[in-house]
Design a protein around this nucleic acid. Structure first.
Lengths: 139, 139
DNA sequence: GTTCTTGCAAAATATTTGCAAGACG
DNA sequence: CGTCTTGCAAATATTTTGCAAGAAC
Protein backbone atom coordinates (compact mmCIF):
# COMPACT_ATOMS: atom_id res chain seq x y z
CA UNK A 1 0.00 0.00 0.00
CA UNK A 2 1.60 3.24 -1.09
CA UNK A 3 1.14 6.71 0.30
CA UNK A 4 -1.68 7.68 -2.03
CA UNK A 5 -3.68 4.60 -1.24
CA UNK A 6 -3.30 5.13 2.47
CA UNK A 7 -4.55 8.68 2.22
CA UNK A 8 -7.49 7.84 0.02
CA UNK A 9 -8.38 4.95 2.25
CA UNK A 10 -8.61 7.36 5.17
CA UNK A 11 -10.68 9.82 3.20
CA UNK A 12 -7.94 12.36 2.59
CA UNK A 13 -7.27 13.72 -0.86
CA UNK A 14 -3.77 12.87 -1.96
CA UNK A 15 -2.08 16.15 -2.74
CA UNK A 16 1.65 16.44 -3.47
CA UNK A 17 2.55 17.79 -0.04
CA UNK A 18 0.47 15.22 1.77
CA UNK A 19 2.13 12.43 -0.14
CA UNK A 20 5.56 13.81 0.72
CA UNK A 21 4.74 14.07 4.41
CA UNK A 22 3.22 10.59 4.51
CA UNK A 23 6.21 9.15 2.66
CA UNK A 24 8.65 10.71 5.07
CA UNK A 25 6.76 9.34 8.04
CA UNK A 26 6.59 5.89 6.47
CA UNK A 27 10.29 5.98 5.75
CA UNK A 28 11.22 7.06 9.26
CA UNK A 29 11.95 4.35 11.76
CA UNK A 30 10.59 6.50 14.57
CA UNK A 31 8.10 9.31 15.06
CA UNK A 32 9.09 12.71 13.70
CA UNK A 33 8.36 16.17 15.04
CA UNK A 34 7.23 19.12 12.99
CA UNK A 35 10.76 20.51 12.99
CA UNK A 36 12.25 17.22 11.95
CA UNK A 37 9.84 16.98 9.07
CA UNK A 38 10.63 20.53 8.09
CA UNK A 39 14.32 19.65 7.89
CA UNK A 40 13.68 16.63 5.73
CA UNK A 41 11.16 18.26 3.43
CA UNK A 42 12.99 21.29 2.17
CA UNK A 43 10.43 21.90 -0.56
CA UNK A 44 7.45 22.12 1.77
CA UNK A 45 6.72 25.07 3.98
CA UNK A 46 6.55 24.58 7.72
CA UNK A 47 2.98 25.84 7.96
CA UNK A 48 1.90 23.48 5.22
CA UNK A 49 3.42 20.55 7.06
CA UNK A 50 1.67 21.76 10.18
CA UNK A 51 -1.69 21.80 8.46
CA UNK A 52 -1.11 18.47 6.78
CA UNK A 53 -0.27 16.90 10.12
CA UNK A 54 -3.39 18.29 11.75
CA UNK A 55 -5.45 16.93 8.92
CA UNK A 56 -3.76 13.57 9.25
CA UNK A 57 -4.51 13.44 12.95
CA UNK A 58 -8.16 14.22 12.38
CA UNK A 59 -8.41 11.46 9.82
CA UNK A 60 -6.45 8.89 11.78
CA UNK A 61 -3.65 8.80 9.26
CA UNK A 62 -1.16 9.50 12.00
CA UNK A 63 -1.19 9.64 15.74
CA UNK A 64 0.75 11.83 18.09
CA UNK A 65 3.53 10.51 20.26
CA UNK A 66 4.15 12.67 23.28
CA UNK A 67 6.89 12.96 25.79
CA UNK A 68 10.63 13.13 25.72
CA UNK A 69 11.29 16.71 24.78
CA UNK A 70 7.74 18.00 24.91
CA UNK A 71 7.50 18.35 21.19
CA UNK A 72 4.71 16.38 19.58
CA UNK A 73 5.93 13.69 17.25
CA UNK A 74 3.94 12.00 14.54
CA UNK A 75 3.78 8.39 13.55
CA UNK A 76 1.82 6.70 10.79
CA UNK A 77 -1.00 4.62 12.20
CA UNK A 78 -0.54 0.92 11.85
CA UNK A 79 -4.16 -0.14 11.61
CA UNK A 80 -5.97 -0.09 8.32
CA UNK A 81 -9.00 1.78 9.47
CA UNK A 82 -8.19 3.75 12.54
CA UNK A 83 -5.57 4.41 15.17
CA UNK A 84 -6.75 2.11 17.89
CA UNK A 85 -5.37 1.91 21.37
CA UNK A 86 -4.09 -1.51 20.47
CA UNK A 87 -1.81 -0.16 17.78
CA UNK A 88 0.17 1.91 20.21
CA UNK A 89 3.54 0.69 21.32
CA UNK A 90 6.00 1.90 23.89
CA UNK A 91 8.52 4.55 22.94
CA UNK A 92 11.86 5.42 24.43
CA UNK A 93 13.51 8.81 24.50
CA UNK A 94 17.26 9.04 24.96
CA UNK A 95 18.18 12.03 27.06
CA UNK A 96 21.70 11.99 25.63
CA UNK A 97 21.22 11.91 21.87
CA UNK A 98 17.60 13.06 21.97
CA UNK A 99 16.43 10.33 19.67
CA UNK A 100 13.10 8.59 20.00
CA UNK A 101 12.98 4.83 19.61
CA UNK A 102 10.04 2.61 18.87
CA UNK A 103 9.67 -0.62 20.76
CA UNK A 104 7.43 -1.98 18.06
CA UNK A 105 6.79 -5.31 19.66
CA UNK A 106 5.85 -3.82 23.01
CA UNK A 107 2.23 -2.71 23.06
CA UNK A 108 1.18 -0.16 25.66
CA UNK A 109 0.00 -2.22 28.65
CA UNK A 110 -3.74 -2.12 29.04
CA UNK A 111 -5.14 -1.05 32.35
CA UNK A 112 -8.59 -0.70 33.81
CA UNK A 113 -9.36 3.00 33.99
CA UNK A 114 -11.71 4.43 36.60
CA UNK A 115 -15.41 4.61 35.80
CA UNK A 116 -16.46 7.49 33.66
CA UNK A 117 -13.22 8.10 31.85
CA UNK A 118 -13.46 7.44 28.14
CA UNK A 119 -9.91 6.75 27.06
CA UNK A 120 -9.20 7.32 23.39
CA UNK A 121 -5.45 7.00 23.28
CA UNK A 122 -2.54 6.27 25.52
CA UNK A 123 1.13 7.15 25.39
CA UNK A 124 3.80 5.22 27.22
CA UNK A 125 7.12 7.00 27.01
CA UNK A 126 10.18 5.67 28.79
CA UNK A 127 13.20 7.91 29.20
CA UNK A 128 16.80 7.17 29.85
CA UNK A 129 19.99 6.38 27.98
CA UNK A 130 20.07 4.32 24.80
CA UNK A 131 22.67 1.66 24.00
CA UNK A 132 24.67 3.93 21.68
CA UNK A 133 24.98 6.52 24.41
CA UNK A 134 26.13 4.00 26.96
CA UNK A 135 22.88 2.93 28.51
CA UNK A 136 24.66 -0.08 29.96
CA UNK A 137 27.47 1.70 31.71
CA UNK A 138 25.08 3.40 34.11
CA UNK A 139 27.24 6.49 33.58
CA UNK B 1 6.55 17.01 56.52
CA UNK B 2 6.21 20.60 55.45
CA UNK B 3 7.66 22.35 52.41
CA UNK B 4 10.82 23.50 54.11
CA UNK B 5 11.64 20.07 55.40
CA UNK B 6 11.11 18.51 52.01
CA UNK B 7 13.45 20.97 50.37
CA UNK B 8 16.16 20.63 52.97
CA UNK B 9 15.85 16.89 52.85
CA UNK B 10 16.59 17.01 49.14
CA UNK B 11 19.51 19.35 49.60
CA UNK B 12 17.81 22.50 48.39
CA UNK B 13 17.95 25.70 50.37
CA UNK B 14 14.48 26.78 51.38
CA UNK B 15 14.01 30.27 49.97
CA UNK B 16 10.66 32.06 50.01
CA UNK B 17 9.92 31.45 46.34
CA UNK B 18 10.89 27.81 46.54
CA UNK B 19 8.59 27.28 49.48
CA UNK B 20 5.75 28.93 47.61
CA UNK B 21 6.25 26.78 44.53
CA UNK B 22 6.55 23.61 46.57
CA UNK B 23 3.45 24.48 48.57
CA UNK B 24 1.43 25.10 45.45
CA UNK B 25 2.48 21.79 43.97
CA UNK B 26 1.67 19.99 47.20
CA UNK B 27 -1.71 21.64 47.35
CA UNK B 28 -2.57 20.80 43.76
CA UNK B 29 -4.39 17.58 43.14
CA UNK B 30 -2.67 17.18 39.78
CA UNK B 31 0.56 18.23 38.09
CA UNK B 32 0.85 21.90 37.18
CA UNK B 33 2.54 23.55 34.23
CA UNK B 34 4.75 26.60 34.40
CA UNK B 35 1.88 28.78 33.21
CA UNK B 36 -0.51 27.33 35.74
CA UNK B 37 1.95 28.00 38.52
CA UNK B 38 2.43 31.51 37.24
CA UNK B 39 -1.31 32.13 37.48
CA UNK B 40 -1.48 30.82 41.01
CA UNK B 41 1.62 32.57 42.29
CA UNK B 42 0.98 36.17 41.44
CA UNK B 43 3.83 37.36 43.61
CA UNK B 44 6.49 35.27 41.91
CA UNK B 45 7.93 36.05 38.52
CA UNK B 46 7.59 33.51 35.74
CA UNK B 47 11.33 33.22 35.22
CA UNK B 48 11.85 32.63 38.91
CA UNK B 49 9.31 29.83 38.89
CA UNK B 50 11.06 28.45 35.84
CA UNK B 51 14.39 28.38 37.60
CA UNK B 52 12.94 26.97 40.77
CA UNK B 53 11.33 24.16 38.81
CA UNK B 54 14.57 23.31 37.03
CA UNK B 55 16.35 23.21 40.34
CA UNK B 56 13.63 21.00 41.77
CA UNK B 57 13.93 18.58 38.87
CA UNK B 58 17.70 18.34 39.31
CA UNK B 59 17.27 17.59 42.98
CA UNK B 60 14.39 15.14 42.59
CA UNK B 61 11.99 17.38 44.43
CA UNK B 62 9.61 17.17 41.49
CA UNK B 63 9.34 15.14 38.34
CA UNK B 64 7.99 16.10 34.97
CA UNK B 65 4.75 14.74 33.64
CA UNK B 66 4.57 14.85 29.88
CA UNK B 67 1.80 14.54 27.39
CA UNK B 68 -1.62 15.97 26.95
CA UNK B 69 -0.99 19.40 25.62
CA UNK B 70 2.74 19.20 25.17
CA UNK B 71 3.47 21.47 28.05
CA UNK B 72 5.61 20.00 30.78
CA UNK B 73 3.80 19.65 34.08
CA UNK B 74 5.38 19.26 37.45
CA UNK B 75 4.46 17.01 40.30
CA UNK B 76 6.02 16.65 43.73
CA UNK B 77 7.87 13.37 44.06
CA UNK B 78 6.27 10.91 46.37
CA UNK B 79 9.34 9.07 47.55
CA UNK B 80 11.38 10.35 50.42
CA UNK B 81 14.73 10.17 48.74
CA UNK B 82 14.32 10.21 45.01
CA UNK B 83 11.79 10.07 42.20
CA UNK B 84 11.84 6.40 41.46
CA UNK B 85 10.12 4.67 38.61
CA UNK B 86 7.90 3.02 41.17
CA UNK B 87 6.48 6.31 42.33
CA UNK B 88 5.03 7.13 38.96
CA UNK B 89 1.36 6.69 38.38
CA UNK B 90 -0.84 6.94 35.33
CA UNK B 91 -2.22 10.31 34.31
CA UNK B 92 -5.22 11.23 32.25
CA UNK B 93 -5.64 14.27 30.08
CA UNK B 94 -9.13 15.40 29.15
CA UNK B 95 -9.22 16.76 25.65
CA UNK B 96 -12.38 18.72 26.42
CA UNK B 97 -11.58 20.63 29.59
CA UNK B 98 -7.82 20.26 29.26
CA UNK B 99 -7.40 19.13 32.82
CA UNK B 100 -4.88 16.54 33.90
CA UNK B 101 -5.96 13.88 36.37
CA UNK B 102 -3.85 11.66 38.57
CA UNK B 103 -4.77 8.04 38.90
CA UNK B 104 -2.84 7.82 42.13
CA UNK B 105 -3.52 4.19 42.79
CA UNK B 106 -2.48 3.10 39.32
CA UNK B 107 1.28 2.71 39.03
CA UNK B 108 2.83 2.79 35.60
CA UNK B 109 2.94 -0.85 34.49
CA UNK B 110 6.43 -2.25 34.51
CA UNK B 111 7.72 -3.83 31.35
CA UNK B 112 10.92 -5.55 30.32
CA UNK B 113 12.83 -3.14 28.15
CA UNK B 114 15.22 -4.33 25.44
CA UNK B 115 18.84 -4.96 26.36
CA UNK B 116 21.03 -1.92 26.57
CA UNK B 117 18.38 0.64 27.36
CA UNK B 118 18.79 2.17 30.80
CA UNK B 119 15.36 3.45 31.70
CA UNK B 120 15.30 6.22 34.29
CA UNK B 121 11.68 7.31 34.17
CA UNK B 122 8.46 6.49 32.44
CA UNK B 123 5.34 8.44 31.63
CA UNK B 124 1.99 6.83 30.98
CA UNK B 125 -0.51 9.36 29.76
CA UNK B 126 -4.00 8.36 28.73
CA UNK B 127 -6.14 10.80 26.80
CA UNK B 128 -9.84 11.06 26.29
CA UNK B 129 -12.88 12.58 27.91
CA UNK B 130 -13.33 12.87 31.64
CA UNK B 131 -16.56 12.20 33.53
CA UNK B 132 -17.44 15.89 33.91
CA UNK B 133 -17.15 16.37 30.17
CA UNK B 134 -19.34 13.39 29.39
CA UNK B 135 -16.81 10.63 29.12
CA UNK B 136 -19.64 8.15 29.49
CA UNK B 137 -21.88 9.40 26.75
CA UNK B 138 -19.32 8.50 24.10
CA UNK B 139 -20.19 11.85 22.54
C1' DG C 1 -16.46 30.12 -10.82
C1' DT C 2 -16.04 27.86 -6.42
C1' DT C 3 -13.47 25.30 -3.33
C1' DC C 4 -9.15 23.45 -1.82
C1' DT C 5 -4.17 23.81 -1.15
C1' DT C 6 0.01 26.20 -0.46
C1' DG C 7 3.74 29.60 0.68
C1' DC C 8 4.94 33.64 2.88
C1' DA C 9 4.64 36.69 6.50
C1' DA C 10 3.33 37.62 10.87
C1' DA C 11 0.86 36.87 15.25
C1' DA C 12 0.41 34.27 19.31
C1' DT C 13 2.56 31.10 22.77
C1' DA C 14 6.21 29.20 25.49
C1' DT C 15 10.69 28.72 26.98
C1' DT C 16 15.07 30.46 28.28
C1' DT C 17 18.75 33.87 29.28
C1' DG C 18 21.24 38.44 30.70
C1' DC C 19 21.73 41.51 33.97
C1' DA C 20 21.58 44.42 37.96
C1' DA C 21 19.64 45.00 42.58
C1' DG C 22 18.81 43.09 46.89
C1' DA C 23 19.15 39.25 50.36
C1' DC C 24 22.01 36.27 52.97
C1' DG C 25 25.76 34.82 55.33
C1' DC D 1 32.72 41.40 50.54
C1' DG D 2 31.18 37.27 47.90
C1' DT D 3 27.64 34.19 46.66
C1' DC D 4 22.92 33.16 45.90
C1' DT D 5 18.24 34.57 44.63
C1' DT D 6 14.99 37.31 42.27
C1' DG D 7 12.43 40.44 39.06
C1' DC D 8 12.35 42.66 34.84
C1' DA D 9 13.24 42.84 30.17
C1' DA D 10 14.41 40.69 26.23
C1' DA D 11 15.97 36.93 23.21
C1' DT D 12 14.71 32.24 21.45
C1' DA D 13 11.99 28.78 20.04
C1' DT D 14 7.57 26.87 18.58
C1' DT D 15 3.04 26.78 17.22
C1' DT D 16 -0.69 28.79 14.86
C1' DT D 17 -3.26 32.01 11.83
C1' DG D 18 -4.32 35.50 7.86
C1' DC D 19 -4.19 36.17 3.42
C1' DA D 20 -3.59 36.08 -1.47
C1' DA D 21 -2.17 33.37 -5.46
C1' DG D 22 -2.45 29.27 -7.91
C1' DA D 23 -4.29 24.49 -8.61
C1' DA D 24 -8.08 21.34 -8.82
C1' DC D 25 -12.67 20.22 -10.05
Amino acid sequence: MNEEDILRHKGVKATPNRILVARELLRAESPLSLSQLEERLSTVDKSSIFRVLNLFVEHDVVHIVEGGDNMAKYEICGGEDHCSLDDMHIHFYCTECHRTFCFNDMPVPKVAYPEGFAVRSANYMAKGVCPSCGGLEES
